[in-house]
Computed example of a mutant assay.
Amino acid sequence: MISVFGSANMDLVAYVSQAPELGETVSGREFRMIPGGKGANQAIAAARAGAEVAFLGAVGDDAFGPVLRGALTEAGVDTSGLQVVPGSSGIAHIVVADGGANSIIVVAGANGAVSAPSPDELAVIRRSDALLLQLELPMPAVVGAAVSAGVPVILTPAPVVELPGELLDAVALLVCNEHEGTAITGQAEPDKALEALLRRVPEAVVTLGSKGALYGSRDGSRLWAPAVPARAVDTTAAGDTFVGALAVARSEGRTAEESLRFASTAAALSVQRPGASTSMPTRTEIDQSLNSGQSPT
């Protein structure tokens, strides 16, 4: 089982030819409301990739709360640990330009009310093979979950903030994109950022978009995994899809190379569909793409 302690947001997505500059107004061609949030996205990605998943977090008592819970439940995620708190659910305003690039504004809402895991929540976490964490919850809650987990912690350090040493000391694997890697380490070159990360955590992955991903561990292992070619429609949640699928592959005992290939294939499938949670592939789709030996495009 994989446990996820994280955020759930309703994504308000506008599709445009070109994202507006500050002070500029542009015409959009489409608008969608799609369940998302980095925590919920990773939970759904892992469930669709074949894992038993438990989600721990919070939604508001607004109209979005039941929709967010329903999206998780439909994907097969256990939501018995999803709290309902007064006020609005988390919201993400997303602008997606032609080619799939996006910009995102997140308003925490109910996610901001989440505190460190309760004894019951810790019992769920400690029954799992891994705990997935992100940074859309209050930092004290994230740190509390990490240090108390008792299982391997996989951290996605997004949105980027200063990372407490107490948190990094509890992380088994850190997965970031190249921009996050630079922000955390001050190193512009991905390979140098990876080396800097490995001075702080035992294992790290730096994803490079169409250029693949770098993996390293303190035992000296280094690996570059090429990206799986895909025609991008919307890159929203591609990183969360990668992390969820990577956690599944690792929990199944796959090697680092096999796990990266599995995760890259899942991410490549996701970018060809609009939306966040709605774009994530099933285990059957991932396996078929891997077994065919062909690009998922």
Rank of each mutant, 00 (worst) to 15 (best):
V114D: 05
R200C: 01
N177K: 03
T236G: 10
T182Y: 03
W224K: 10
A170N: 11
R200T: 01
R127H: 14
A227M: 07
P274V: 10
L168S: 04
A113T: 04
G239T: 04
T241C: 15
A19Q: 13
S80C: 11
G99K: 06
E21K: 14
G186M: 05
S118W: 14
A51H: 12
V114C: 08
S80H: 14
L163H: 02
M280A: 07
L174A: 00
A238M: 06
L173W: 12
G239H: 06
G112H: 12
S80Y: 09
E30H: 15
A130W: 02
T282H: 01
R126P: 08
A108G: 08
T284D: 14
V233W: 03
V206P: 01
A113C: 00
A245W: 07
T278Y: 02
G216T: 04
G253W: 10
A97F: 07
R32P: 00
E21I: 00
L168P: 03
G60W: 05
A149M: 08
G90C: 11
V248L: 07
L167Y: 06
V201F: 07
E178V: 00
N9W: 10
Q294T: 10
F262L: 08
G165W: 13
P86S: 11
R127M: 09
A193N: 01
G6E: 08
E121I: 04
H93M: 13
A146F: 13
R32F: 10
G28K: 14
I104P: 01
S295W: 12
G23W: 12
V106M: 13
A47W: 11
A256D: 14
P202R: 11
V147C: 07
M1N: 12
A47N: 05
T284E: 14
P117Q: 08
S3C: 15
V153T: 06
R283W: 11
P117A: 06
I94H: 09
G109R: 00
P296E: 01
S292L: 08
L72K: 06
V85C: 03
G253V: 10
A149I: 07
I94R: 05
A204G: 04
A47R: 08
N41E: 02
R273V: 15
Q18T: 14
R222Q: 06
K211H: 15
L223H: 12
N102R: 13
L198T: 03
A227G: 13
L198R: 03
A141M: 07
R261M: 12
N177S: 07
G109Q: 02
V171K: 05
V16R: 09
V142H: 00
T73Y: 02
A116W: 06
P274Q: 15
A58C: 12
P86D: 10
N291M: 10
Q42K: 12
V248T: 08
Q187K: 14
G209V: 05
A232S: 15
L197S: 00
S264Q: 08
D98V: 02
A170M: 11
P202W: 04
A245S: 14
Q272K: 04
V16C: 07
P229L: 11
G181I: 01
Y215K: 09
L122K: 00
S103W: 07
